[in-house]
Design a protein around this nucleic acid. Structure first.
Length: 140
DNA sequence: AGCCATGCACCG
DNA sequence: CGGTGCATGGCT
């Protein structure tokens, strides 16, 4: 069981007015990418559906997608992972810029629990190891 | 690398 | 017609 946390940007929750689909999943850490499932890079824009259960046991189906036209289309510029279909959830919990989205894996592949952590809360737990990537961190 | 943005399609 | 998501480019 592993937990990854993403601190939400303004664009993530849609407060910038953009209707971009989804939060970013940095491809820098293979473990983070593998955490959400395996997407075949040999295909163009492969995706997979994941299931996330919140604290009220409500299930949210999210789309994990790898925009990779840089690898397949001449002149393509995309090479990044995203998770989409989060707007309803963000609305329901009144997510704000700076809040953190907490994903915890389960025994089932592609099944996770999610919860929103308000930014006001101080960081405790010294045994947590902060990992590398901007916006995301892993919790052991 | 990560966040910001947008033209178009689709749907209620 | 307004909101949402897709797939893409742009800016720092």
């Amino acid at each position: 069981m592993t937990t990854f946390i993403k601190q939400l940007s303004a664009n993530d929750i849609g407060s910038t007015g953009s209707h971009q689909a989804g939060i970013l999943v940095p491809k820098g850490d293979p473990e983070l990418v593998g955490f959400f499932g395996k997407l075949d890079p040999s295909h163009l824009n492969p995706d997979a559906w994941i299931s996330c259960v919140d604290e009220e046991l409500k299930e949210w189906r999210l789309r994990f997608v790898y925009y990779n036209n840089k690898l397949h289309t001449p002149g393509g510029t995309r090479n990044e992972y995203r998770i989409t279909h989060l707007t309803k959830y963000f609305k329901s919990v009144n997510a704000a810029h700076g809040d953190s989205l907490v994903f915890t894996s389960s025994s089932e592949p592609r099944h996770f629990s999610v919860r929103l952590e308000r930014s006001i809360k101080p960081e405790i737990h010294t045994h947590r190891r902060r990992v590398v990537l901007t916006g995301w961190r892993k919790v052991h």
